[in-house]
Design a protein around this nucleic acid. Structure first.
Lengths: 204, 204
DNA sequence: CGGCAATTATGAACCATGTCCATTTGGTCG
DNA sequence: CGACCAAATGGACATGGTTCATAATTGCCG
């Protein structure tokens, strides 16, 4: 067969990414082969290589999608937070909830790494950065007139912490610890961290 | 060739694990193939399957080693901490330092997951649990006469946080954030968290 | 309307890898 | 010394990533 004109390159790319996500969810990363993706969209493997340089680049494309979805989830969480002071709690909870609900995709985003030497995918980094900015904005009310650097340090620190809960929860490494209600953990981390900030602000 | 009696099964297993670690460090996970391991120890692939059920089990064995090494690193950090009150800081810093220095092995421990349905490797879980206990003991002086459950919650929360910094640091996702001196982050997290605990203990 | 060039998709091949197992080889014991 | 048993081999099989010569279509030009 030659040109079929059923779908444009862009459409095929869309379809491939969507199919990859589907397979990733149902079969996990080991089940995500180029051939399966090709089958799923009704094309052959060779054709897939006209859309993506290689498998890594397909995965990068999937990760971009995931990063967008996470961003949207956090954004929604902020907007529907009952009170500004509770925003951080809600962002954290939303992050963990998303990760648990879409574990395979979320893990891929953080665990997939390209061969050494290849440039880090700009798009994904950018999206993670935006995510941190969201946290900064949620943190700002708790740190009135703090310098930008301090705000950033605190956002990075707190968000790394939330991320850590996420990682351990998603990989099942928290189960034995007796605490598998992750909301308790993230709330506790956020509350204690913020209390610590207050204490530092108005000591003794 | 048949029985060569050069090495016992145990020795071969040792050699294989050591070779796997070496390859992992120099070539990364994608370069860690059964054939390369077999070559490195001077046996054939088939023989490797007399030592390990499959590749996953080899990786599990490597992970056990890593978990032990991490435990030792943390234990040392505690013992050489200048003051008990600073122990937590030192444990956290030691954890991150180990992860950065042995990134490939550390990542494998948290990112490698067995096919769905297979039992979680008891040995690795046990070792991670011991690690958390180390944190609990370091945290105890900061929470005098706290109930066991509270101690555990706090240890889990704080350690998840430290782990999060680790993950992001090791995968290079903190670089853009301007803060790539991870010691600053972990100290800040520990300090703020402990301050928050104190504030909760003696409010206003 | 017909054929031609450009484009698009194919599918068969290559190589590497995980895994298995029939066969061979070397040690051991009577 | 010979037979037996365990140990190690090596080659086979299936699957996966990647490439590329080739075939199939399309749009265009006369």
């Amino acid at each position: 067969m030659g040109r079929r004109n059923l779908h444009t390159r862009e459409q095929q790319t869309e379809m491939a990414i969507a199919a990859a996500e589907l397979i990733l969810v149902s079969k996990g990363l080991p089940g995500l082969t180029m051939r399966k993706v090709a089958d799923a969209i009704g094309y052959t493997v060779g054709n897939l290589y006209l859309l993506f340089e290689n498998q890594d680049q397909l995965l990068v494309a999937v990760n971009e999608r995931t990063a967008d979805a996470v961003y949207v989830a956090l954004r929604d969480a902020i907007e529907s937070a009952p009170a500004p002071r509770l925003q951080i709690r809600e962002i954290a909870a939303a992050y963990i909830e998303y990760a648990m609900k879409h574990a395979a995709r979320w893990r891929l985003m953080f665990e997939h790494s390209l061969p050494v030497g290849s440039p880090r995918p700009r798009a994904v980094e950018l999206r993670i950065k935006r995510m941190f900015e969201l946290v900064e904005s949620g943190l700002a009310p708790h740190l009135p007139d703090a310098p930008e650097a301090s705000l950033r340090l605190n956002a990075t620190t707190l968000w790394s912490g939330v991320h850590g809960i996420c990682v351990l929860a998603v990989t099942g490494k928290l189960r034995w610890s007796g605490t598998d209600r992750y909301r308790v953990l993230s709330d506790h981390l956020v509350d204690t961290f913020l209390a610590g900030l207050r204490a530092a602000k108005a000591p003794d």
